[in-house]
Simulated scan of single mutants.
Amino acid sequence: MTFPPIREELRGIEPYGAPQLDVPVALNTNENPYGPSAACADDVAAAVREATTTLNRYPDREHVALRTALAAYLSRDTVPTRGFEIGVEQVWAANGSNEVMLQLLQAFGGPGRRALSFAPTYSMYPEYARDTSTDWVQGHRAEDFSLDLDRARETVERERPSVVLLPSPNNPTGTALPPEAVGMLCEAAGDGLVVVDEAYTEFRREGTPSALELLPEHRNLVVTRTMSKAFALAGGRVGYLAADPAICDAIRVVRLPYHLSAVTQAVALAALRHAPELLGRVDDLRRERDACVGWLREQGLTVADSDANFVLFGTFADRHALWQDLVDQGVLIRETGPDGWLRVSIGTPEEMVAFRDALLTSLDRLADRPAGPTTSTTDQGVPA
């Protein structure tokens, strides 16, 4: 046996992660560029200070206070539109939505079961499947990155997956799902789960509904979210879901004991107390995103419609050369998605000016360069 005795399907695989480069303008991981205010930071610090006085004891393994606060936050979406509240028994949280997804596949995937999504999509999904020994099945999106609903339904009915993973807005394209797609796939999945990953949902355009509104109609629907993006809490590592209480109970079977530290719970609760402030720059980022989409199209580029805080654009015969040229100018974006496309996270107005200036320079500089390979030689992403 070759040392170390790692599982054979993992041998030789590079760890998941993006280049962490020291550049003036980092627009590659879909973070919120606006950090918490001093008042919010003081509240977080006080909450952590209080939590440290009891660190000799294990935290609340059911994180009831945090789930209660998250349920109240989610109900702000459902009460005005559909007239129902999300209950604490419907909410579960973990260390980022990545752990939430992994727990879902630990509970509902496994050997002899299938997980399915539609490419291009979040590149961590097949890794969740691999790590839980779940078979991975990949359908495909239409040319404009939307879902062909008839084709998607046929794929789900044919493959009979235990878990369907549907990001909305989709990463890396920014494409949101219409509610009829969610309902149709919930029915097509039978007893399988349909997980709508709403990591970027706070950035969705006006009139785009949340899948939360469909929870009472489909007991197999799971809606996951994160505090990493709109809440500007990427360093806090807090993700959560809303689902039927029976689904939350099933996750309890596979979760590690005391998986959310007392410090994590304290930080998240403090952030939720400051939700209006932390979410206060979402409208600014939406406007900046829409301006970026318009400007890129004015340059003759193809741009995917986005309901997220990033924009996918292309297409380039040698996207890696363009990515590298931008890095050389101090601007880091993302080489991800289908061949020929690049993705830029939305930053501050000053950062977006730097991106536009650098992109124009790169496009001029590379205009006469012979086309190289279209396959990426850099990252496949980070949890973003």
Rank of each mutant, 00 (worst) to 15 (best):
L279C: 03
T315Y: 11
V311T: 11
L285Q: 11
F310C: 09
R287G: 09
I333E: 04
L326R: 07
L278N: 03
Q324Y: 02
D318N: 14
F310D: 04
N309F: 03
R319I: 00
G300N: 09
F310Y: 15
W295H: 14
R319Y: 00
G294V: 12
R319F: 00
T264E: 12
G314R: 08
Q299E: 15
D307C: 13
F316V: 05
T315F: 09
G330T: 08
E277V: 12
D328E: 15
V303R: 11
S306A: 13
Q265L: 10
D284M: 06
D328C: 08
G330V: 07
T315N: 12
F313C: 07
G300D: 09
H274T: 03
F313S: 02
D328I: 03
Q329F: 04
H274D: 05
G300M: 06
A291Y: 05
R289D: 05
L296M: 12
V331R: 07
G300W: 08
Q329R: 15
E288D: 08
A271N: 08
Q299H: 12
F313H: 04
P276S: 11
R273D: 14
L272D: 02
T264W: 04
D290W: 10
D283I: 03
V331F: 05
R287Y: 01
V282F: 02
A317Y: 01
L278V: 07
R297L: 04
A268W: 06
Q329P: 00
F310Q: 02
L296S: 08
R289Q: 08
D325I: 00
D318W: 11
D318L: 01
F310A: 10
D305A: 15
L278H: 06
A304Q: 07
A270R: 08
Q324C: 06
F313N: 03
L279R: 09
R286I: 10
R334K: 14
D328Q: 12
W295P: 01
L278D: 03
A308M: 07
D290Q: 14
V282T: 14
F313L: 06
H320M: 05
G314Y: 08
E277C: 11
L279G: 02
L278I: 06
R334S: 15
L322Q: 08
Q329H: 12
E288K: 04
D318F: 03
D283V: 11
H320K: 04
G330Q: 10
I333Q: 02
Q299W: 14
A275S: 13
E298I: 06
L278W: 07
R273F: 01
Q329M: 13
G330S: 10
D290M: 13
D328Y: 01
